[in-house]
Design a protein around this nucleic acid. Structure first.
Lengths: 151, 151
DNA sequence: TGGAGTGAGTTGGAAAACTGGACCTTCACT
DNA sequence: AGTGAAGGTCCAGTTTTCCAACTCACTCCA
């Protein structure tokens, strides 16, 4: 991946794009924070889960907190940075609910009383951010929207 | 993954969670739609790219369109379902921009004139969908928020 | 004291996915 | 005839992932 376009999407996926990583976060957001439960609910092999948890902790997305000293037991909680990933899960879930199933396995209730239908809007004007209202500007040196300069 | 929680996030990731899949979509949204350019800009090995494109086409996320008959050449365009994945990329980018870098490699201008700051809101009331305003309800038979029943 | 159970991993080997490069085909240009 | 581009395919080698089994430390119960 060395010659690829510099990009925050790629950088983010380098942390949470590995298999099971986002499912681990889903469980944590659902309140499931212990190793065994996360392993069962995601289906992740235990060694993979160990690696993912370590990576997410190193990245500052989760924190490992002892909830018992004797025996020593830990739980994994989202940090502020981890909580900021919630929108990613909401948009992924919304896409699957719309395009992959008729019966959403999980629905989310918003505090307004309605079932959540997540919409991405412009933080400035509040209008929905649809593709045809967006214009990307590539700032990375040596790159344009189309690709590397002089290629 | 057979015993895992049924979940639209997992189902969506089964389609777009493999390495490079979302980067391919990023390029397509940037207007880069030909095999060679996508390969260069994402850094994906060509045979991996072949596999990802086929999968995305099969899933109805991209469509393969001939733009030249002689020689036969193709480009990949997002379908309506593909365009619905744009919010996923926007939220991933927003997280990386906030937590991983000071200088976003790409900024997006919204039609309102401002630089886009993507926010996920409730489609009903328009309020920001923060974790503490959300209550999940698991509908999948045999499952609760905490895990499978009787486990 | 003895045995079962739980939580959080580690270990080892087979299977799958990824990597980088070479190769192929069809056409256009010179 | 030679070169180059587009769009792939093929292959050998490496890295990841998968899965079951195993460990270790401790708790609970009789």
């Amino acid at each position: 991946m060395k010659d690829a376009r510099p990009c925050s999407i790629a950088d983010t996926l380098a942390l949470v794009g590995e298999k099971y990583a986002l499912l681990v976060l889903r469980e944590v957001f659902l309140g499931v924070r212990r190793f065994d439960r996360i392993a069962r609910n995601t289906g992740a092999p235990r060694d993979v889960l160990t690696a993912r948890l370590r990576r997410l902790v190193d990245a500052g997305i989760l924190e490992k907190v002892a909830y018992s000293e004797r025996p020593r037991r830990f739980e994994y909680r989202p940090t502020d940075a981890g909580r900021d990933l919630h929108p990613v899960l909401l948009t992924l879930m919304a896409w699957g609910d719309r395009h992959l199933t008729d019966e959403p396995p999980t629905v989310i209730e918003h505090s307004c009383g309605a079932t959540l239908r997540p919409v991405v809007v412009c933080g400035c004007c509040g209008e929905e951010a649809r593709g045809d209202t967006l214009t990307p500007h590539v700032r990375a040196p040596g790159w344009t929207t189309a690709g590397p300069v002089g290629a």
